[in-house]
Design a protein around this nucleic acid. Structure first.
Lengths: 332, 332
DNA sequence: ATGAAAGCGCTAACAG
DNA sequence: CTGTTAGCGCTTTCAT
């Protein structure tokens, strides 16, 4: 039924080894022979069986990608970066959603390794002990993208979340605010608890502003959470006049909450976001935001992985991509 | 180095056939034997090699997914639906972006078939002749998700785009508008040219409103295109008072364009969108929109594919999912 | 209930 | 430059 390398060999009057050579671009084939084989391949519509090839060569040219949720723009952006570079290096991608659930992450790792992927790119907002152990047992390289492993034992690609957050809050402080709130996603995510909030505290301390725990809110990373955060925060005796939002959706929720309350942004209320997705330009006022270069993070992570799979020497396993703040109109 | 089924067999004093049976849940194994084998598997940390299995069984339990662009929310949503159902049926997914480029689509089809996927879910806004032919040659089933094949020869999952569009425009007409514009994405996409615009024309004709080609704009599906469309349309001698937008971004661009011009939505200008992504709630006014259930389309397409791969009998290859219009505030 | 043996389609020495 | 020959790790008859 399906045509195999054997059929091609027979039709072309050569051995299967020769066919294999032309298919794999091996130079040790006489041009005339190559031509003949190529013709038969075309005529028979021969298509190499990658599974057989994988079994024989122990390489599948496919990498696994484990991300929390592809329908979330942040991860989709990274996935695109990963896929683009993968394609460039002729790898295919097995993509799966973990929903940030440890059991799923563990299972996915296992089934991907079972499928003999040549490497894995992993995004996880909380690299737990167990995950860490499983990753340690992997026979193929794994790189973390936009995910912090506190032990710093795995190759990873990130920006300096702490520094970026610090700069964001300092911008608000520089504009004269004393009552500054921070609204982030789940505390279970390392980036929120260890970096955004810690940086926020440091920025305030450095400016001798007393830290008011009531101004620190961590819930979801969503628009509705932003709306809710505004609700509760605006009811405080001394409500905040500026906000550091952990994501664009959060920032937009905060802004709409403020506007629905008759407050002007940025005249009365200033908001700085952390993400800079395309949403940032789709609100009025447009968001001033720390730019989190997800596409680049994904792309660089995949590139790092190709090197690792290729057993190239890596200078530094923890790469930090530069960040910057995109100035728009939610901050004066 | 890696432990194989053979190692397990030796350690458990059984044949590899028996190990294979317990791994595959075959009932013809004495409980005691099964237990013994399971123990060895655990102890040796044996993990079946899916590639070898795939070669021997001619099934890989992985399906290919070809979509235009994972970083575009619309497709990401569908991808999530596909993946969820795939996971439910124990399939993994090889995901790749085509950028709506025919050559890439053709290549992807080929490499996925080379990787011996058991089936393919394809999203393509323009099923060309060539694509059609390649799909026809596929040894495994292919289902189209949210994509129209005009010959209706391939299994597919869609909503009734024409009817949905008709209802949207009729809603605007019912509100008394005579100057109604339609702003869509590329005409090259079947859904835009054959359905949205045709439905728009029919709705107007039915209401005896003369069709003005100047009110029909097709460019990109983006926010900026929406902004630009407003620009040009508002400069007309008789500018439109209502808009049918082909996507949420387009709708938001139109609304912001109007608002920046001092027009009130929906008091002076009404806009109905076609998509209903989460963006729809993140603008003021919130978007009234035809709901395009991408997640469901992906999920149903994948479910259909499982049946096809299973050689089950399918009643109807072209499934149409019900649609509805979500009423919010961009239309009175 | 279990084992023996023949592939699945290809790569990779090794010869020549 | 080309052919021969082992496997790669597992499924799957066919016996027993």
């Amino acid at each position: 039924m399906t045509v195999t390398i054997y059929d091609v060999a027979r039709e072309a009057n050569v051995s299967m080894a020769t066919v294999s050579r032309v298919v794999n671009g091996n130079q040790n084939v006489k041009p005339a022979t190559r031509k003949k084989v190529l013709e038969v391949i075309e005529r028979l519509e021969y298509r190499p069986n990658a599974v057989a090839r994988g079994l024989a060569s122990k390489k599948t040219t496919t990498v696994g990608v484990i991300i929390p949720d592809i329908s979330n723009n942040i991860y989709a952006e990274a996935a695109r970066g990963i896929e683009d570079i993968a394609t460039m290096y002729r790898y295919n991608i097995i993509l799966a959603n973990s929903d940030q659930n440890e059991d799923k992450e563990l299972n996915l790792l296992d089934t991907m390794l079972g499928k003999q992927v040549d490497g894995i790119v992993m995004m996880s907002d909380a690299v737990t002990e167990k995950l860490h152990q499983s990753m340690d047992h992997s026979p193929v390289p794994i790189v973390l993208a936009g995910s912090v492993d506190e032990t710093d034992k795995f190759p990873s690609v990130n920006i300096d979340y702490f520094q970026a957050s610090l700069e964001a809050v300092q911008m608000l402080i520089a504009n004269g605010h004393k009552r500054i709130a921070i609204v982030t996603g789940p505390l279970a995510y390392t980036i929120n608890s260890k970096f955004k909030i810690e940086a926020y505290k440091k920025a305030l301390s450095d400016a001798n502003i007393v830290i008011d725990e009531k101004l620190i809110i961590s819930d979801d990373d969503t628009y509705d959470s932003g709306l809710e955060a505004w609700e509760s925060l605006s009811e405080l005796e001394q409500p905040p006049t500026a906000f550091f939002a952990g994501s664009d959706e959060l920032a937009i929720g905060l802004i709409h909450g403020a506007q629905d309350n008759g407050k002007k942004v940025p005249d009365e209320i200033e908001v700085i976001s952390f993400e800079n997705s395309k949403l940032a330009r789709m609100v009025r006022p447009q968001l001033t935001s720390v730019v989190l270069p997800l596409y680049d993070i994904g792309a660089v992570a995949m590139r790092l992985l190709t090197k690792l799979m290729n057993k190239e020497n890596i200078e530094d396993q923890s790469v930090i991509i530069p960040h910057r703040i995109e100035m728009r109109n939610s901050v004066k």
